[in-house]
Write a protein that binds this DNA or RNA. Sequence first.
DNA 1: TATTGTTATACTCTATAACTATA
DNA 2: TATAGTTATAGAGTATAACAATA
Lengths: 145, 145
Amino acid sequence: MAAGEALRELILAGEYFRQVIANNLELDVSQTQALGYLYSRGDLGQSELGSLLGYNTSSVTALVDRLERRGIAERLPHPTDRRRSIVHMTENGRSVITEVGQTFLHCLDRVPTDSVPDLAATLTTVAQDLRAQADRLTAGRARTE
Amino acid sequence: MAAGEALRELILAGEYFRQVIANNLELDVSQTQALGYLYSRGDLGQSELGSLLGYNTSSVTALVDRLERRGIAERLPHPTDRRRSIVHMTENGRSVITEVGQTFLHCLDRVPTDSVPDLAATLTTVAQDLRAQADRLTAGRARTE
DNA sequence: TATTGTTATACTCTATAACTATA
DNA sequence: TATAGTTATAGAGTATAACAATA
């Protein structure tokens, strides 16, 4: 099926783009992924971030340490639960992702303007279902093992 | 712009999917990426594979070693240039990616059938342009440094 | 002389396990 | 007792630099 092929190529290109961006910013790939999640979903708990990335808690601890050192995100105390940290994107982090966005968005330049809204809706659906498929696999693994 | 947001989410979901798949297959992310490239582009030289992945030659050597150990790809001699190796996907590799595809393609189930051809064309264009943007950045870096 | 790939080495990132603090 | 996060440690992947073989 051609759409599957095209989607595979798009994901590979996205991963390639991310790697180049990470190199340019002297960040690792995980840091740029975390930044993307913070940008689109707002503040996140560490374990929440870990779920999105597929990381365990100790890896998230190390990742958030790196984000703090780079001034991209910071830990804020949870208002009611003192065990938790809230990972919050800094203004500097926002400026970094905004700058990246200026390059990123050019990949949509050749999409006809009037088909952009439909495309956005379709991509959103596909993204949701792709994540759902992945989660189905992990759930299956958890059951059998 | 909403399409940019949606595309970002799709790429993040794609990376998440890949990570889950890699875990399930006990492969690393790079191996599954290489498999994807071999599947969609056929045989590749090692340095060619390195360019697609954004890796240097020594990393590709290590990666192809791993692929060979897992029976996913093999090195074949280049017919005329004895310096080169051709990285060739094995039948086993093909069966692995085919099986993954059965899960992967379900993320397209909710896309209306009659809009699939347009979607495929659009995704292909966006993938090309995304890679082109990334390459523009690396070229810029190479020039200034 | 340039290119393709390998080796030795060091560094970075992620996972496992044990632990602390809080709910 | 369960949950959120940290620390110590080990393991795996990638990069740098020097190298061998071939073009």
